[in-house]
Design a protein around this nucleic acid. Sequence first.
DNA 1: TAATTATAGTTGTTTATGCAACTACAAAAT
DNA 2: ATTTTGTAGTTGCATAAACAACTATAATTA
Lengths: 150, 150
Amino acid sequence: MDTKHIISTEDRHNLLTGRIFMHVSRFLGQQFKANDIGLTREQWTILVVLWKQDGVSQQTIADETGRDKPSTTRLIDNLEKDGYISRQPDAKDRRLNIIVLTEKGKALEDKIMPVANKTLETLTHGLTEAQLLTVKEVFATIYENIDAHK
Amino acid sequence: MDTKHIISTEDRHNLLTGRIFMHVSRFLGQQFKANDIGLTREQWTILVVLWKQDGVSQQTIADETGRDKPSTTRLIDNLEKDGYISRQPDAKDRRLNIIVLTEKGKALEDKIMPVANKTLETLTHGLTEAQLLTVKEVFATIYENIDAHK
DNA sequence: TAATTATAGTTGTTTATGCAACTACAAAAT
DNA sequence: ATTTTGTAGTTGCATAAACAACTATAATTA
């Protein structure tokens, strides 16, 4: 037995099939629901961008959340329909939609973020900073590997 | 500055929003497509279970891949429609569908797995065994944290 | 300035997920 | 033996993602 290879090919596959993400995603959605938050996990990621910096283009949101444009368009459709944001034409570049939080959208931050943070704590309970740092490094390397392949 | 906290809350959020998984998933799908593999990443995860152990119930596949039953039903619908697998009634328990690979499904393994393994190598290029082991441990802890919360 | 190229956003289509509600069958309890 | 409870699988509905094809506008270049 080759003790150098403590990670099997199967392990590697498991890391990449997204199982963990599916579970985390489901769990976060359930926590939202249990706290009467009528937002999907995906919609929340859009609002996080806007809470950090209000008034950015859809393309910026797409880049920040790692989505393509069509997916972003539709998430924004739904958020606008539910009254959390509004699209406003950019004064200088008529191609751009500037996405702006409504009062309802702004107010939501204080309701959701405690739930998100608590969920985050639950999920990372028992993990060390060193472990999380390694995960961060690993993810960064994977991003680089993908980019290098384009 | 508190040097103990090298991982910010924002970092933690990034780890959990699934961005990395979206990118990995997209990349794997693109590699499949580039190699003329007419399977989705999700369908592939089902076949991986069957290549390891042919003739299991849908529930087993659901458990192994971390999906709920409806999702599994529909993935199996599509795989059956495309002729990779077939549903067979269990002799002893008439509730069960036993999922069996067709010849076409069996033959696919030799075509896909080299592509999947190569993609895996590309993605994990430059990562050490120790780093991957840590990721494995972190994921295991997160699973435990989710289970403990039910 | 006119033509070309690039960018921002939308729409159509296919596939997948989550949850709830349902049917069919099996196992356990009474 | 009958009722109750649990398990396997399906269907309906809403949301989301990937990709391709499209429109509108801006920037480049010839």
